[in-house]
Design a protein around this nucleic acid. Structure first.
Lengths: 339, 339
DNA sequence: CTGAAAGCGCTAACAA
DNA sequence: TTGTTAGCGCTTTCAG
């Protein structure tokens, strides 16, 4: 029992305890090079007894290698990004790379800051949501000299690589399915998020395709904050009070869509006969509602997976396709007539 | 335009570009010590033009200081942990500490591995979910010589500090409320998770308090995987088919409880008259269901906040209470008769 | 207010 | 198979 102020154990401590040089200890602990089994055991034994935990800071500085992949996403509080993360983890788990997550809350300046912090740890790669970043952020990404994969969107020019769906196209396809099903008086309900570029692009694609069919969005409403399910209810009620003739409601995400669905069922309204509904994301969570909401899968897990694959390939100097557009499919569910 | 292999910029580059010594450049970039305004500007200018991003690895090694707090949690895919994280972030944002998240998937060996990885970066503190860890993990935590806060549970002996609720007590209190409301034939539905110690403790407290009232759980059912809402439905249907006389269903989490609620409403069963329901977690997400499910707040955000406060205090050598039991309150909602 | 020297704990490269 | 040497890029410390 000592009264020393706390000091972490070093290779030197293990070296002394085992009577083996620091260099050889280092080799054993990293499974590098040839080490005799006897030495190996001595070292392992000593390290274990002391409870030695290597110092990656020193290791990284010396080797100029950091096994971290920076993952930068807007939020953890909806189902979408955690699922992307698990796709990333799945792939990285079989490598020696580790994801480190940073959250931006959809704020460009915060994204810039988080990115700066993460890059200062010299990660081996970056996976970042979206194609819209500040000029400074883009400059940092380029200057970092590491693989950068922008995910969840392909409508724009990536700094380096990109994996995701086209939200514009997703909006168009949903609009076309709605028109094809015969709906004509359409309302839109979404988040009040000027900075959610993907939601914006979906909306743009949506209105564009409607316009081609000679239809315009008749009413729209936006919310921010609060429980999405409850908001979906409120907004739907408000919109139908204002525009009782609507025959379709398109929601920018499944949670508010589910709220709307529950409201309409409560009111005894015929879905999808009198009013059709659709959301976005293909949230599995919602399986189990009285009706299955029409939606569109955003290929979240797959995006994560592919992005991680690109990073690992690049880190190993292998060739990979660096622009991957994934194809979401419409799930008609029980709230959008099939034609 | 050069064809050099990529090399990160260093202080030396900034030093040369600005004609100021490395040491002074370092001072400027860290806002340390006195530097003349003129020099300061020269340095800042040069750093910006070059796009210099400091190398924290080298900085951390030299200063023996790492502004990272390791946060280790079982999962990101239910609402509970993201909310803890946001409590932590809220507090750390006003300091120079940064959370780094690791996920264990409720697996002790993975927890051990994640912990090892994180400790090898020499963080300033650890926040880790739960009080149950492998011996090796506990040893590492003790040996790290940094503040360690175990959160989300206080039923046990922490390595260092603890913040959370007593799940045993939470189970007891819910049982008592149920008995007080007059229910007697009680079913339990939960996750098949031997490693979710908090769910287990709740169940233990629950049965213990029921027993004191001379009541036993009449039927129980466990699930794993799949959409919680859908599972809640299925399990409820199965249980009521088997045990039609039950008058109360206690769910180990709100999502399956919500599934059960939707099922019962579909069936036109009188809730909470014929059957009462309760879940656990106080998930805000579910506001907006036709009825509000009875539940119990797990003080998630508050746990995160308090844990972060303990870490920051300790890092600054301030005194803090290191054992904090939070008090969850029952929300009766519309599915548990009030007495 | 500014700079020079020493070294943080580890690993690359080379020598034995 | 093992050991030695020289840094990695920064900050601490001390001297101007």
């Amino acid at each position: 029992m000592t009264t020393d102020a706390h000091r972490s154990l070093t290779l030197r401590d293990v070296s002394e305890a085992s009577g083996v040089s620091e260099m050889t200890v280092s080799r054993v602990l990293r499974n590098r090079g040839d080490v005799s089994e006897a030495t190996r055991q001595k070292v392992l034994q000593a390290a274990k007894e002391l409870g030695y935990v290597p110092n990656k800071i020193a290791g990284a500085l010396a080797s100029q290698r950091v096994n971290l992949v920076a993952v930068i996403i807007p939020s953890l509080s909806n189902m979408v990004f955690p699922e992307v993360l698990s796709g990333i983890s799945e792939v990285l788990e079989s490598t020696d790379l580790q994801p480190v997550v940073g959250v931006t809350d959809y704020m460009p300046e915060k994204e810039e800051k988080v990115l700066y912090e993460m890059l200062s740890w010299r990660p081996s790669g970056v996976i970042i949501a979206g194609l819209e970043h500040t000029d400074a952020a883009r400059a940092m990404l380029r200057a970092a000299g590491i693989p950068v994969v922008e995910i969840m969107d392909v409508d724009g020019r990536p700094v380096d690589a990109a994996v995701g769906i086209s939200h514009r196209r997703a909006g168009r396809e949903m609009a076309n399915a709605i028109l094809k099903a015969g709906y004509r008086r359409i309302g839109f309900l979404g988040t009040k998020m000027p900075l959610d570029h993907r939601a914006r692009k979906r909306f743009e694609g949506f209105t564009e395709a409607l316009a081609k069919g000679g239809v315009q969005v008749e009413d729209q409403e936006f919310y921010s904050g609060g429980s999405a399910l409850a908001k979906g209810r409120e907004m739907t009620e408000a919109m139908l009070a204002r525009s009782p003739d609507l025959d379709f409601l398109y929601y920018s995400n499944d949670m508010i869509g589910a709220g709307g669905l529950l409201y309409l069922l409560d009111q005894g309204i015929d879905v999808p006969g009198q009013i059709g509904l659709a959301g976005f994301n293909g949230v599995e969570l919602l399986q189990g509602l009285p009706r299955k909401l029409a939606s569109m899968d955003a290929c979240r897990r797959e995006s994560g997976r592919r992005a991680a694959e690109i990073i690992t390939a690049r880190v190993n100097n292998e060739d990979v396709e660096s622009f991957v557009e994934l194809s979401p499919t419409i799930a008609f569910g029980d709230t959008l007539k099939r034609r």
